[in-house]
Write a protein that binds this DNA or RNA. Structure first.
Length: 160
DNA sequence: GCCAACGTTGGC
DNA sequence: GCCAACGTTGGC
């Protein structure tokens, strides 16, 4: 797939972990609850079926990329936005004006070992990653092919 | 728990 | 449209 793009999705493992994704039916989940416009626009405008996803665990003892997944359904309305009991409820949203969208992702594989944020920061080849630069708070980030390859390569080799 | 970075809100 | 106040994220 020549124009395959790559992404990094953050999740707090206490709320939703890579294991949770692997345990879903078809290892597939709706990525709902994104409430940041930059992240939404990336999902809505650029994410395509087949795109690669690095699954990153944030707000945990050892923040790290822990697995890979891929997009199996492109952007569609996030119906949790107009569900008043949802923790993702947004009064601006409605079925006629969804405001927020989501994609579906399917787990591929746990990495041979996690690639930690510390290692990513220590690797000069990865100093352009948004994860370690501006946009640190972005829950969905674009990743280059080179960064994708580097992280998977780090995972296949031993810790530094 | 602290705090820096960043996004959002709302008064003007 | 500016910008201060406020809230959230997320590493440490």
């Amino acid at each position: 797939m020549a124009d395959r793009r790559y992404w990094l999705f953050k999740s707090e493992p206490g709320a939703y972990s890579f294991s949770d994704l692997q345990n879903e039916e078809d290892r597939t989940a709706e990525w709902d609850g994104v409430r940041n416009y930059r992240a939404r626009n990336l999902m809505r405008d650029q994410m395509k079926v087949g795109d690669g996803v690095l699954f990153y665990h944030s707000s945990t003892a050892v923040p790290a990329v822990v697995g890979t997944a891929h997009v199996v359904r492109e952007s569609y309305p996030d119906d949790t936005a107009w569900e008043p009991t949802s923790r993702y409820y947004d009064p601006k949203a409605s079925p006629d004006n969804p405001v927020w969208c989501m994609v579906d992702i399917q787990a591929d594989a746990e990495l041979p070992r996690p690639v930690t944020l510390r290692e990513i920061k220590d690797n000069p080849k990865l100093d352009g990653m948004l994860l370690v630069r501006r946009g640190m708070r972005l829950s969905i980030q674009p990743v280059t092919r080179e960064e994708w390859d580097e992280i998977l390569g780090m995972s296949r080799s031993g810790p530094l």
